[in-house]
């Protein structure tokens, strides 16, 4: 594992702890998009089905289990939060899920001549998870643009997700150059996903880093 991948993973891990801290210590899920969190849970469950058939490393196994468990817990907390109507969580997620699923059925890494149908279904779900992750932040971005009272911790959560994506891009450049590692589906979707965060970082810069004490 190279340093870029590791920093990316640690930033991703930090994003979970930031969000959990916000939910637990403020006892409020205001500003957190349930739709984005439900999409992330879907992403992790679909992508990490290979927990059952492929062992890469204990690092990978534990991170995958944590990502699924933590996102499931976050979805549970936000969904059952009574103090938050989340009326601004209005993104139409079917416009994300259905195109991602259709695209995954046509653009994937299946090899029907090799492995059985179950392995190929896993390939389709892997591609679906990649496409869905690329756009899963959009409901959260929409909420951030609509809410005035977005807490800093939610913004830091988003920033750590953006850093995670940026370092994965560096990781892929490194791996392509030194290892010949190349998953075009993940790389193209990863570039799209990182570009979506560019919009967020402008907001972050304006609302958090430039915020003056009143």
């Amino acid at each position: 594992m190279n340093i870029f991948r590791f920093v990316g993973d640690m930033s991703h891990l930090a994003s979970f702890f930031l969000l959990l801290a916000k939910l637990i210590y403020t006892k409020s899920s205001t500003g957190v998009s349930l739709k984005t969190q439900a999409l992330y849970l879907t992403v992790f469950v679909c992508r990490y089905l290979d927990l059952l058939v492929a062992f890469v490393s204990w690092y990978n196994e534990l991170m995958k289990i944590f990502f699924i468990a933590a996102s499931a817990y976050i979805v549970y907390v936000v969904a059952t939060s009574t103090r938050n109507s989340n009326a601004s969580d209005t993104y139409r997620v079917e416009f994300l899920v259905i195109p991602a699923l259709v695209l995954a059925c046509f653009v994937n890494e299946t090899h029907w001549s090799k492995g059985g149908w179950s392995l190929n279904v896993m390939e389709i779900l892997w591609a679906f998870s990649i496409y869905l992750e690329a756009v899963a932040v959009l409901p959260q971005l929409k909420m951030l643009h609509q809410l005035e009272d977005t807490t800093n911790i939610t913004m830091h959560y988003m920033a750590s997700l953006g850093i995670y994506r940026a370092f994965y891009l560096l990781n892929w450049v490194y791996r392509l150059y030194y290892e010949g590692y190349w998953h075009p589906i993940a790389v193209v979707a990863g570039i799209v996903q990182t570009l979506l965060y560019a919009d967020f970082f402008i907001l972050y810069y304006q609302s958090v880093l430039l915020r003056l004490p009143s």
Binding site: H12, V56, N60, E179, W182
Partner: peptide, 10 residues
């Protein structure tokens, strides 16, 4: 060279 690599990322 580009190789078909296993999926070892998160």
């Amino acid at each position: 060279h580009r190789v078909k690599a296993p999926k070892d990322e998160l």
